[in-house]
Amino acid sequence: MDLTLLTGYGFWNPLLWLAFLLIFGGISYFLWALRGNPAYKPGTEQVKPFISGNPEPAKDLVHIRARHIYWGFVEGLRGYYSFARKMHTGDVRDYALWYLGVGVVVLILLVGGI
């Protein structure tokens, strides 16, 4: 049974992948087991977050919620996103208009013979 997938330039073989997983997993485990901070003592003041002596806020408040993740990416592409938001009006008539528009363009391309 041949498990190798030829993709044109490269290939993929699960057994090879497993072999590499074992090798690199072994190396990672070795690195992890070898070192470690000897000064780390769980259950002391040391493991608490440092916020300049202020009381620690409730866990609900420190959770990074979905809207905060990639805020910068969306902000950086604000021009693009304002266009994309405008395109998705949610109005059923616009759905039909997009369909008609694309249909007209396709027909012009095909029948016009470009």
Binding site: R85, H88, T89, G90, D91, V92, R93
Partner: peptide, 10 residues
């Protein structure tokens, strides 16, 4: 009104 009945957008 199709302009108002559109809570699903963006």
């Amino acid at each position: 009104d199709s302009r108002k009945a559109r809570r699903l957008r963006e």
